[in-house]
Design a protein around this nucleic acid. Structure first.
Lengths: 284, 284
DNA sequence: GCAATATCTCTCAATATATGAGACATTAGG
DNA sequence: CCTAATGTCTCATATATTGAGAGATATTGC
């Protein structure tokens, strides 16, 4: 039960306070345990003993589940050494990306943007209070970004995140900002965002232009320019950003890049049925 | 039972003919069913009805499992529309790639190769009778290859596959060649490999040089040059290839590319502890 | 090289667990 | 507005999972 790391389950956003004792699980405990085992392996607990401990389940049972998972290719087993995530997960992960029409539609545009700028380009969506990276084109300059597809980052301190925030009511800005500003994890030496009053002013300015800047707030030495992607109902459904090391990102270049990134984002938006004007028509 | 479309469950390569009646399943039927449900969604069966039919399980049960999978983020549910693979699978897939030290070690080298050649570069390993793509750097020329990370392809008719075959006894070459040559699926208009006697001659030549050619055998209009990657015990554990459209791949260029690809492969091999000379020392 | 230790494999009875039919609520689409 | 399909829920039943432990196999330490 300590595995509940990400509450991204939107369907059941309302918990049921009426059934306190029955909350143990909706139905398939066995299935959930198996999935928990996969996540144990994903988070570095690769030995049977450790997994059994984390799951609070006898070794015998864990072993049986692991065998099934290995047989299906979800895990890979090196006898007497440990378990690793298996090839099936790679396959399914890639397929999951393909199934999101967004990724497929956006690909050509972010590739073009990457080629044009020579920098790292990201595509991301909101997931809970974080940005979820759906795609990444590495820089052609040879410098590697720490970001990865499938990774999560705070919304308020990343270029993509701030672009996504443009689609939210300003009241949420505060929450998200404070969540990052007060976050105890300054691991990796994140400088964090500007103090609130200034942050709000900046965001308001971004909102007018419809593109955002990030000045080493998420990672020292990395600046980026982002813009939101909208769907047919004018909702922000994703965002893109161009990121690079500070030396490649002087203020003037960022100012030039703004409209470029916005244009790319708009191109993707149009693929999703978005119409240039601001009117939201929910009907097809 | 007509659901087995993709026999990608290779892990248990040796079947056990001694236990004919017990083959029903190792242990956790519930877990396996849940995983099967995921694969249904992966292969396009996105409605509850269809999944229930393919699994031979009542809707009620399927529904419960799907709920659990959605709650854990393995699936995504659009009410009254269908199910999609969820973000957790993207995360796990990426993590699975990271956990393979091979991918991380090889990355810089294949990136360098991609930049140097301007073409699509692949990294793959053997999985059963197929090559499994572990990484791919897209071409900077704008032309997109059909290959994808996580995909499988026949060994005998791909550049990477043939490079991997260099690490196998020639007796297996025949099987693999015939498997492709007699394959009834000529879908996508695959021309297929050369007839056997000639194929063997070519392979023998490749073996001497330690790099291989593929001349539109897997896909019309695509040529590639591949080379095997070896580990500390001199075993072939992976292969890389450079692929491009025919106009970019005249015979002379392929001849030049051979040593280049081999050098890149050797660089990765050295990262794995491989020593230049041909002697196999199993001890550290 | 051998012993000690840890991991894997397998069996079996008990029972907790998932099952599945069906009724009901909700939504989509014509 | 109505119909058909999907989602939601309950409950008795028996199936399928569980978990302890003993034995086989491999790894590690000495």
């Amino acid at each position: 039960m300590p595995t509940r790391t990400d509450p991204m389950t939107r369907p059941a956003e309302t918990i049921d306070p009426a059934t306190p004792e029955k909350r143990q699980a909706a139905g398939t405990q066995t299935l959930l345990r198996g999935l928990a085992a996969i996540e144990c392996v994903a988070t570095g607990t690769t030995e049977v003993k450790g997994i059994a401990a984390r799951l609070g389940t006898p070794r015998s049972t864990v072993h049986r589940m692991l065998n099934s998972l290995v047989a299906e290719g979800y895990l890979h087993h090196v006898p007497y050494k440990g378990y690793l995530l298996g090839p099936k997960l790679i396959q399914l992960g890639m397929k999951a990306l393909e199934q999101r029409p967004l990724v497929a539609l956006a690909r050509p545009h972010i590739e073009a943007l990457a080629q044009r700028t020579g920098d790292t380009v990201h595509l991301g969506v909101v997931d809970g209070d974080e940005v979820f990276y759906l795609d990444k084109i590495p820089s052609t300059r040879g410098l590697e970004m720490r970001s990865r597809v499938g990774l999560r980052m705070p919304l308020a301190s990343t270029g993509i995140g701030k672009a996504l925030m443009l689609g939210m009511p300003p009241s949420r800005w505060r929450e998200l900002h404070d969540a990052v500003a007060t976050a105890p994890d300054t691991v990796g030496g994140r400088p964090g965002p500007q103090p609130w009053p200034k942050y709000e002013k900046l965001m308001a300015g971004f909102l007018r232009r419809d593109w955002v800047l990030d000045l080493e707030e998420n990672e020292i030495g990395v600046r980026c320019v982002g813009a939101p992607v909208r769907d047919i109902s004018n909702q922000v459904v994703a965002a893109i950003s161009v990121a690079s090391a500070v030396p490649y990102m002087p203020d003037e270049r960022m100012a030039e890049l703004g409209p470029v990134v916005r244009a790319a984002a708009d191109a993707i938006s149009r693929e999703l049925g978005w119409k240039q004007d601001g009117s939201a028509t929910g009907l097809p």
